[in-house]
Design a protein around this nucleic acid. Structure first.
Lengths: 137, 137
DNA sequence: TTACTTGCAAATGCTTTGCGAGCCG
DNA sequence: CGGCTCGCAAAGCATTTGCAAGTAA
């Protein structure tokens, strides 16, 4: 099971009280979501009034640099985070509710590499987001 | 040939002196690039000292709403624009130079629709960006 | 004429940072 | 102890907006 605190320790990160709280909050919120900084701050600050939003910003940046979490900039203007998983996946965003669904498609991954190569590039990163509306029936 | 000013007239947009200048600047810059607001402003202001950056912001937003240009938020933090073309395409960004290349891949388009459908969604928009480094040989 | 536009400067919203105080190892 | 962290408030950046004056149709 995913545990941000444990991942941080494994990476040798110095864990302060604030970082522990923030790690736990991200772990909990990631079960079913892609929280933004403010959402993380609200939850963390509730557990520990001593946590400022500046620290949340500094901490998610740190966690990201250490590969513990990943940052996504969807079209809603703020950055959202999720715990790094073993397997890569992309996202489909419900434009009416903001709900984020994950999916993987090996076929697309392969084509992307091919496309890049044909243009004379080595693929180092990519961004694939689908935006849709729920089909009612 | 692409001409933003003409596209605006076709859409029935009221064309002021500023909008004409900005339209021309975008037309010229789009030949080989994806300019951001500041770049557009610099060029427009050179032609007409009376153009403020606020007007450029308001104008690109207007042009975008009318479907004349398209906005892209690549990973460099500011919005970039390009003239709307008949056929959709995606982008590959050289992470070392910032150069932007365009490509189309019908196969990926089809798979995206399929993926969305499988998740119970109708695809209304998508974002596909490849980030790579030039292959040296 | 008259609603739409503009320049300017102030205001946003998200994110970063300088600084002195505090904490982890 | 000594460097890494923190909270706070101020600063940054790209972008938006209120307002009074100007302009296209």
């Amino acid at each position: 099971m995913i545990n941000v605190k444990k991942m941080c320790l494994d990476k040798g990160l110095r864990m302060t009280e604030q970082r522990n709280v923030i790690a736990d909050v991200i772990t909990a919120m990631s079960v079913d979501g892609h929280p933004d900084v403010n959402e993380i701050f609200l939850n963390a600050n509730e557990k520990d009034k001593n946590i400022s939003i500046a620290t949340v910003y500094r901490t998610v940046k740190l966690f990201e640099e250490y590969g513990v979490i990943e940052k996504h900039d969807f079209k809603d203007g703020r950055s959202r985070y999720e715990v790094t998983e073993e397997h890569h996946h992309d996202h489909l965003i419900d434009i009416e509710t903001g709900e984020i669904h994950e999916f993987t498609n090996e076929e697309i991954e392969v084509i992307q590499k091919t496309v890049a190569k044909e243009l004379g590039f080595k693929l180092v990163d990519h961004r694939l987001e689908l935006y849709g509306v729920k089909i009612k029936k």
